[in-house]
Computed example of a mutant assay.
Amino acid sequence: MPKAIRIREYGGPEVMTYEDVPLAEPGPGQIRVRQRAVGVNFIDIYFRSGAYKAASLPFTPGKEGAGEVTAVGEGVSGFKVGDRVAYGSGEGTYAEEPVIAAAAAVHVPEGIDDATAAAMMLKGLTAEYLLHRVYRVKAGDTILFHAAAGGVGLIACQWAKHLGARVIGTVGSQEKAEIARAHGCDHVILYREDDVARRVRELTDGKGVPVVYDGVGKATFLPSLDSLSPLGTFVSFGSASGAIEAFDIGLLAQKGSLYAIRPTLFTFTSNRATLDAMAENLLGAVASGAVKIPVHARYPLSEAQAVHRDLAGRQTTGATVMIP
């Protein structure tokens, strides 16, 4: 029997158990995939802890992975047994052989290995919509990206640099600062030591930046707003430090008629044509070498508890994958 991680109650990493599960047959619109690598993301922690609710308990966490198709459900076109696929908005990917909605999957071209494909989909597609759809980064822009040495940050900062932007990143340590600089950041701010907004103003001759990308949340919310130029855009796409609470919309007026948006990847990828365009853009950027996917840690799937502890403790840089 194939193995999977199962969660019977919300809680800490210890609620995840590694156990045998029945081999499922794909239903209409689904494919079954023998996974070669599983992506790990903060959203998995939100579901495990109960910050986000699963459809039902027990459940298998995970949104991201890559492998080869082993069975195809009724009505599925475009995929066949043996195809290499990857996905960033699947369900239950902490498993050896999960069933995935075909609508979430894309073909993986030659030259991109399974670990890279599994590591790039959720984070890479997130970077794609942030830089190309929410706020279109163009040559000459100066942007601020929080957690620049994180999984999304390392991809997005490289890509923004490739687009011709000047990139300011924030990180939590000197070690992470070096990694961020090596992946596209022109300037790095140590947020534990420096006043982020003041430093951004210094780097922009007092003007601020037109866009801030913030996946950290509670800890960076006000510094983000204070870093923006008038009519700037605050893009909140995660809450690694906790959720932003009691958001007073009047702050946007006080701080310069700002825009604020809280997009999700799944809104964009729910449209097949949009997903295909995003994946083509991402895979092209990776295949060309413009964006490199840094897979910095590999664990067995059985060690999912340790993976979550490291991720939540901000002990990781770049992408982590689990090998079933």
Rank of each mutant, 00 (worst) to 15 (best):
A66R: 08
V307M: 06
R166N: 12
A147F: 00
A312W: 02
T142V: 10
R309M: 08
R8V: 09
T320R: 05
F247T: 14
A118W: 06
A240R: 05
L57A: 13
V81T: 13
Y135R: 08
E280S: 15
D141C: 03
P22L: 12
S236A: 14
G172V: 08
G39D: 07
G67A: 09
K207L: 09
R133P: 05
L283P: 01
E25H: 13
K255P: 03
A104H: 12
E128Q: 15
E14H: 09
A55D: 13
G92A: 11
G82S: 10
K218D: 06
D83H: 12
A149T: 05
M16D: 01
E97Q: 14
Q315I: 08
D194K: 03
G217I: 05
G206W: 01
L275R: 07
R166D: 08
E14D: 15
G78V: 03
Q305P: 06
Q315S: 14
Q35M: 09
T70W: 00
G111H: 04
L222K: 12
A177V: 01
R136W: 02
A104P: 10
I45E: 00
P109A: 07
V152P: 00
L228V: 05
R136E: 07
T233S: 07
D194S: 14
A71Y: 01
L125V: 07
A156S: 10
G289I: 05
V33T: 01
G150F: 01
G12F: 03
I100N: 08
G92W: 06
D214C: 02
Q174W: 10
I31A: 07
T320G: 10
S56C: 00
E19Y: 04
V76S: 05
V33H: 03
P22F: 05
Q35N: 07
Y46A: 13
T317F: 10
E64S: 10
S229L: 13
V81Q: 06
R6T: 15
P22E: 14
A277H: 09
A285C: 11
A117C: 09
T274F: 02
A156M: 06
V38H: 04
G313W: 11
P58V: 01
A149V: 03
T317Y: 11
G39V: 05
E110I: 03
T220V: 02
P58N: 06
K218T: 02
T70F: 00
G289A: 00
I249T: 13
D20R: 11
Q254K: 15
D186V: 07
K80W: 01
K80C: 13
K207P: 00
R201G: 04
P2W: 04
A102C: 04
P300L: 06
L251Q: 09
F47R: 07
A147C: 08
G27A: 10
V295K: 12
D114S: 14
T267E: 13
Y191A: 11
E91K: 15
K3T: 03
T17E: 14
I7Y: 00
R8T: 14
A71N: 12
A246R: 14
E193C: 11
L122E: 02
I7F: 01
M322T: 12
A287N: 04
Y259F: 13
A182I: 09
H107A: 11
A197D: 03
F247I: 15
M16C: 12
L203I: 09
H308I: 07
I155W: 03
E245A: 12
D226F: 09
